[in-house]
């Protein structure tokens, strides 16, 4: 149990309501040093698989993702961490499939070579169904598909992040001082950081407006 670590972490506001990161990366790394070695290894291996920032597209290929996934599995992750990583990979897999289909592309015959997770075979089998017959299992899928078709990238990201955020909140509330709670914080922090980085010029304008507002109040 991580009573001290969990209590040393600040409250994370919902990603859409946050205007800044409540803890800096440097300080977060310092706090995370309290994690046990095996837990730290699990998170180190899981983070590249579930990251949100646009950098993931620069550094990862299908092969490197597969290698990262294998490395992650070798760390014997906790069941909830494994479940989250699988969930996030399935989310990415479904989006990739939704993007491929309008382009007229089809997955290769050997379905094990183009995806990870338990849904690969199902997607392959129901390629022509609107939501691969997975809309009841992944209730966010129809909404995400609609946003994708409309080219609403922000709306799509909002749905995906909202789904993951709620999942992680449920985990942290069910076991407040456990490793899973630390894991939920870290992944939510990653999500928040990626969300805040989406539009930095706009954020700077908003920040300036806030400063103007505050100084105006102070002067009047």
């Amino acid at each position: 149990m991580y009573y001290d670590l969990v209590c040393s972490l600040p409250h994370l506001p919902y990603f859409e309501e946050a205007d800044r990161l409540p803890i800096t990366p440097l300080r977060l790394n310092q706090r995370m040093k309290r994690l046990g070695n095996d837990h730290a290894d699990q998170l180190r291996a899981a983070r590249p698989l579930v990251q949100w920032s646009a950098e993931r597209f620069k550094d990862q290929t299908d092969l490197s993702l597969d290698a990262n996934y294998r490395r992650f599995q070798q760390t014997a992750p906790s069941p909830l961490l494994h479940e989250y990583v699988t969930f996030r990979l399935t989310q990415r897999l479904l989006l990739a499939a939704l993007r491929m289909r309008p382009l007229g592309k089809k997955p290769s015959a050997d379905y094990r070579r183009w995806g990870l997770g338990s849904q690969v075979a199902s997607i392959h089998q129901h390629w022509d169904a609107p939501y691969f017959q997975l809309e009841y299992r992944f209730t966010w899928l129809p909404d995400a598909s609609e946003r994708l078709a409309a080219g609403d990238a922000v709306g799509l990201e909002r749905i995906l992040m909202g789904t993951c955020w709620r999942w992680l909140t449920r985990v942290s509330e069910s076991s407040m001082f456990s490793f899973e709670s630390v894991m939920a914080f870290l992944f939510k922090w990653d999500m928040l950081r990626a969300w805040l980085a989406f539009d930095s010029p706009k954020a700077k304008i908003q920040f300036s407006a806030l400063i103007d507002k505050v100084t105006h109040v102070a002067n009047s």
């Binding site: 009573y3 001290d4 670590l5 969990v6 209590c7 040393s8 972490l9």
Partner: peptide, 13 residues
Amino acid sequence: LRGGMAACGAMLE
């Protein structure tokens, strides 16, 4: 121990 660890963690924040 549980309370004390939580208190020490909160003191950092």
